[in-house]
């Protein structure tokens, strides 16, 4: 669905993008990770036909973004990282405007817009002026706007930036729904860790270069991100820690008043064996839990804890 080959973008002497290549299958949710200024927004702007690449090819649905921008625009819904709204319009009028701008006849829009508002949970705000909506609502309205012409591809640049946790969760639920609808989605986001379960692939970009790319699990494995297992016991925590230190796949063990933290590099099968072993030691265990190892860890690992935000 999306094909990027050797894409470069230069501003004077500054290389915003260096030779990026990317292929995203139809129906894939692709997470774009990287620190600010790494080139995520530049890539997305090029895909959205708003910017010209210095060299290289970017295609959406087989159409080159520089040669057939109009065809590309038909197929994409683009949500910029920062956007404004027309304050003097009501939510429905706002959607009508964009619908009309995509050439959708009025009768069709009349049916479509209530559905879109329902999708983004703004039905009760249909006749509210856009400027009186909260930031989260504006963000959702903007997402509805992206969908107004039923595009196959959604390019969402930081769709959850500046949202409070509740609004983020709402946004995530909507994105899940869109994934189920079969949309191809490119998303760059702070909430990528939270999106882990819905992102199929990620690309990590830094200083305009693609550092890592592929399935989330593959990248995690490739980087050998060690898991942290948290074990809570009723008593004999120190003894457990001692015993665990002798286990081959355990890299380190820490104890504190919340329990034992085990850094473990085994896979799931080995982990289940470890659990069996721990139980066989007959130490009263309350919980044995893998601490959330998520995209954020992957990201930090790859970008070596470089500045983010």
């Amino acid at each position: 669905m999306i094909e990027i080959r050797n894409l470069s973008k230069r501003y004077g002497t500054f290389h915003a993008l260096k030779d990026i290549s990317l292929y995203i299958e139809k129906g894939t949710v692709f997470g774009f990770v990287g620190p600010n200024g790494a080139g995520k927004s530049t890539t997305m702007s090029i895909l959205a036909t708003l910017m010209l690449p210095t060299s290289g090819v970017a295609k959406v649905g087989g159409y080159d973004v520089t040669r057939h921008p109009k065809e590309v625009r038909k197929r994409i819904g683009y949500m910029p990282d920062f956007f404004g709204v027309y304050d003097q319009l009501k939510a429905t009028e706002y959607l009508h405007f964009y619908g009309a701008s995509y050439g959708i006849p009025r009768a069709e829009r009349e049916q479509l817009i209530p559905q879109l508002l329902e999708l983004v949970n703004l039905t009760d705000k249909a006749d509210t002026y856009v400027d009186s909506l909260s930031r989260g609502m504006k963000q959702r309205l903007c997402l509805a706007r992206c969908l107004v012409h039923d595009p196959e591809v959604l390019i969402l640049d930081e769709p959850a930036s500046g949202l409070d946790p509740r609004a983020r969760i709402e946004m995530r639920e909507i994105l899940k729904e869109l994934k189920q609808m079969g949309k191809t989605i490119i998303i760059s986001s702070h909430i990528l860790p939270e999106l882990a379960e819905m992102v199929d692939e990620i690309g990590v970009i830094e200083h305009g270069e693609m550092v890592a790319q592929g399935k989330v699990s593959d990248i995690q494995n490739r980087l050998r991100v060690t898991k942290v297992i948290h074990i809570r016991t009723l008593e004999r925590g120190e003894e457990l820690a001692e015993k665990l230190r002798d286990e081959p796949l355990v890299t380190s063990v820490l104890t504190d008043n919340t329990g034992v933290h085990v850094h473990y590099s085994g896979d799931d099968v080995q982990q289940s064996e470890l659990l069996r072993k721990v139980i066989s030691w007959e130490i009263p265990i309350v919980s044995f839990q893998e601490a959330q190892s998520n995209l954020e860890d992957v990201f930090l690992e790859i970008t070596k804890g470089g500045p983010r935000e």
Partner: peptide, 13 residues
Amino acid sequence: EKQTLSMLLTTQQ
């Protein structure tokens, strides 16, 4: 300045 232009430019107009 109001950051609405990019969205307008990605429409079919």
